[in-house]
Amino acid sequence: MTAESKKGIRILQIAKAVLFAFMGIRKKSDLEQDAATLKPTELIIGGIVGAIIFVVSIILVVRMVVS
């Protein structure tokens, strides 16, 4: 596996962890894998990016509703 694709998989894993966190659910096995591989800083940055995406997507939905 190339370094770039490894990085891609890692970002995907962070995104998945953050997405599940927003819903408030996570399988135990996935969580253990997250805890073993992901760093807290990555998750915090992921969380902030997630919050921004969350806000932007609601704005988009609202614009769609009122247009």
């Binding site: 599940f20 966190a21 819903m23 408030g24 659910i25 996570r26 997630g50 919050a51």
Partner: peptide
């Protein structure tokens, strides 16, 4: 773990 995640997301 869901509880931890739910707490964090409620805070955000």
């Amino acid at each position: 773990s869901s509880m931890v995640y739910a707490t964090a997301s409620i805070a955000i």
